[in-house]
Design a protein around this nucleic acid. Sequence first.
DNA 1: ACAAAAGTGTTACCCCTACACCCATGC
DNA 2: GCATGGGTGTAGGGGTAACACTTTTGT
Lengths: 252, 252
Amino acid sequence: MAFTYEFPRPSVTVDSVVFGVGQDAEGNPDLQVVLIERGLEPFKGRLALPGGFVEVRDDGDRGESIDDAAYRELREEAGIKPDYLEQLCTIGDPGRDPRGRIISIAYMALVRTVDHVAVAGDDAKAAAWHSVKRVLATRNALAFDHDKILRLAYERLRVKVRYAPLGFNLLRPPFSLSELRVVYETILMRKLDQANFRRRILDMKILVEVGEQTGVPHRAGMLYRFDKRVYDKAVRDGFNFEIPQPPEGRHP
Amino acid sequence: MAFTYEFPRPSVTVDSVVFGVGQDAEGNPDLQVVLIERGLEPFKGRLALPGGFVEVRDDGDRGESIDDAAYRELREEAGIKPDYLEQLCTIGDPGRDPRGRIISIAYMALVRTVDHVAVAGDDAKAAAWHSVKRVLATRNALAFDHDKILRLAYERLRVKVRYAPLGFNLLRPPFSLSELRVVYETILMRKLDQANFRRRILDMKILVEVGEQTGVPHRAGMLYRFDKRVYDKAVRDGFNFEIPQPPEGRHP
DNA sequence: ACAAAAGTGTTACCCCTACACCCATGC
DNA sequence: GCATGGGTGTAGGGGTAACACTTTTGT
């Protein structure tokens, strides 16, 4: 089977940066990303973002949407169903892939690591969680221009988590405010004042109480879940989600 | 000449939303967008965003980058060299284009209308400025899914102009603070307090004085230009550009 | 003189950071 | 009792929205 066109055409792929908050070797919370080990050339054996070619058909049914392609590849390559998926950017420099002209649409996805402790592809590709900090600290850790994409995704996450309710896609409800705060501290890589974080989140009135902690070696705290309905209504009424910028350069 | 592949491939296009601040029929400042009248089917005669196919080659030189394609199409279709170009999103639903599977990469561009009073394509396509408000108020004003893209672009502009120095790409230096304020008022579609806007912008220290107004029927004001060097340095030092959100729902 | 925009000053208020402090629970 | 995190209170300070006011120029 072959497909012939009047003008040359590029291949189009999707690649996804899947973030989760897990734990590092010492048990500290750690921002992590799902990477696969490439089974084929080019970059065979190297780490890369999960992804693959967008399915195109030339008949009446013309194939899947780009979002669907991202979902499908995540399922096939890493067994992941993301809770949140957002388009990041499209990269298409000639020469970014040795196989030819390949345009890649990058996505950022968020998952609850607890739901995806084991991630694994079905075609002999090993998929696993890796520390974002570690990967970003390594020069050319990833195949193709995936380092660049990861860097961009992390930057986007770090900025956007402050003004959009992304954090809730990283923990399983019900959660305590401390668990939520730890997610934010992990992403923002700085400490947040417990009392003020608490007030700020609760004042938004976008969480609903769903019970109390039990068996904890301290006063039991309230457990919550994020209510998207309430959030959307609040947004329509002019509400703006916001976690403030750190005061940073202070000399007390 | 024909090009044959093992698997079917999509066509890839770029489409650009070019914004400018011009004047409406009554001489009031008006946010405008460049649209072309399509000369070919499908949607012949309808208004559409300027754009076209990304050039791909199969030989050693594999063609242009996506950004380059956006620049080239703007030049060819509307004679425009944008001062600012930013990738918006990529749309690729099967069925969005009756000609087949076409994936489109959308861009947002900003220009100084005074530099592009006459916009015109070279291949018999009429390119012209249109009121964004008017176009958005019309159902299916544009071909394909370009209404959706325009809406997305305007939303992005409205949000981003508050936290990034985009406004300066819409007026020719030197400009007065009033001219700058009018640009912001036009995009945000609300009045800004003159005194506070002035202080806020000047406190940023990202403008440099380049003379004074002359021949104006009121006290001459200072003229400025935006200094990207100074801005970049300020950003590195932790500075954040920001035009505040309107207090909106107040009952004084 | 008048209009119109430039530019400066001021105040009252809101917010919110930083910190202190009490509460409840398991060990 | 003690450690740990949950949860509440508050004083002080910074920022700024709103508005008044003065200045300068052309007609």
